[in-house]
Amino acid sequence: MPSYNLYMGCSVPANYPNYEAAMLKVAKELGMELEYMEGVACCGSPNLRAIDFMGWLTVNARTIAIAEKNGHDIVTPCNGCFASLKDVYHHLKHDDAHKKQVNAVLKKEGLEFKGISKPRHFVEALYSDIGIEEIQKKITKPLDGVGIAIHYGCHVLRPKDVTEFSPEIYQELVKVTGATVIDYPLWKQCCGATVLPVNEELAIRLARDKLKSMTEAGAVFATVACPACGNQLDLQQLGLKESYGEEYNLPVLLYPQILGLAMGMDEDDVGLSMNRVPAGSIIEHLTE
């Protein structure tokens, strides 16, 4: 049974307990052992990277160093945490001077960044370590081919030399549930979350463009694997009626919710009622 250090970050636990719970439940069913990391805090987000590169390096190197005490990889359900951790991991593996500098600080806590425990996104670990074949065996209520648009999120897709993530991972994971993956023009585009603190109007426009592109291509549902992207695509829909006079009514599900349902869990197991745009209609697409 593969074991992992579970790094939650701060957004999922505070804003998406349904995501956290659904992830833990599908992981358990599939034999992934996720253990909450001890003594960790926030990744700092791209905002910390922007204003305080050394601080950002150090806090994330610290998280990795804590994981290295047991040597298991780190998994996280958040694209932002994944990006910070993986970027720092990648950078420190290639920059000895910074590694020394960071380790001098970590030494005070008896920690050292070595570069053994790799930061990974939960969905990638699911795909690579459990595999589609094993997941397939657990699908008891496949979806009826309903069209789902995937919002991958910038920070898992790019920069690819750092993230080592490919879109096929997410596509295969959606297909195994019985759903159809909807190809839409703006699939690569940003949800706008990062610019929210500096220009809300622009952030809303980006979310709206994304939703428009998805629905016009025939998506019945959308899926994300990130709390920030979730916020943009799910929560922001509620305000679009006012700002754009447009209503999308496109339910946005966190990936483990879809997988959990297809594995036979019920809507309370995956916290469906917490999704902002009512997502209950996915139940109608489950077959026996």
């Binding site: 910038c154 920069p159 690569k188 585009q189 940003c190 990062t194 500096v198 622009l202």
Partner: peptide, 11 residues
């Protein structure tokens, strides 16, 4: 500061 850090340019 407005840059989305979406890495589309870089890609």
């Amino acid at each position: 500061w407005l840059c989305l850090t979406c890495f589309q340019c870089q890609e």
